[in-house]
Amino acid sequence: MKVVIKKRADKEYMLKKERELKEKYGSIDSLGQKASIEKCSFPALIDDYELWKAIEKGCEIEEEIIFQDSSIFRTLSPSRIEMLDFMSKNSVASIKELAHAVKRDYKNVYFDITALKKQELVELIKKGRENIPVSRIEKIAILFD
């Protein structure tokens, strides 16, 4: 069996990714030079360079996380799935606001967000003093093959 989690990559996500790359490397040319020189020691540079080139050309992004067994369901409890469902349809300004919206205790929601972030199912975007929880998940599928 396989559990396939498909993530959404909209224009906002692409802009965010481009901003992150710019902050990290300055320009695409300097990253290109760095990747050519240090490609053996830091292979992630190559991926970042190719990713940036593709984003500049206006590519479409398909992103998936695939689990070969059902272990992800230790993380994906019913209440966490409901939270992901809520976040996929609504945006919240903070974890506190999310807790209020799903009518759950802040401490438990914070704990759940931390667990989901560990599996890269949720991202926390820092804005001022707040950490904004964002989920890009659009589909979770179980495949029996």
């Binding site: 190719e50 080139k53 593709a54 479409e60 398909e62 992103e63």
Partner: peptide, 22 residues
């Protein structure tokens, strides 16, 4: 048209394949 396909495949809890295709 460019298309980027990114996958993270968990082989075990502590082993993954990170894939990037353009």
């Amino acid at each position: 048209m460019y298309r980027l396909r990114k996958k993270r495949i968990y082989i075990r809890k502590n082993e993954i394949i990170d894939s990037l295709e353009i």
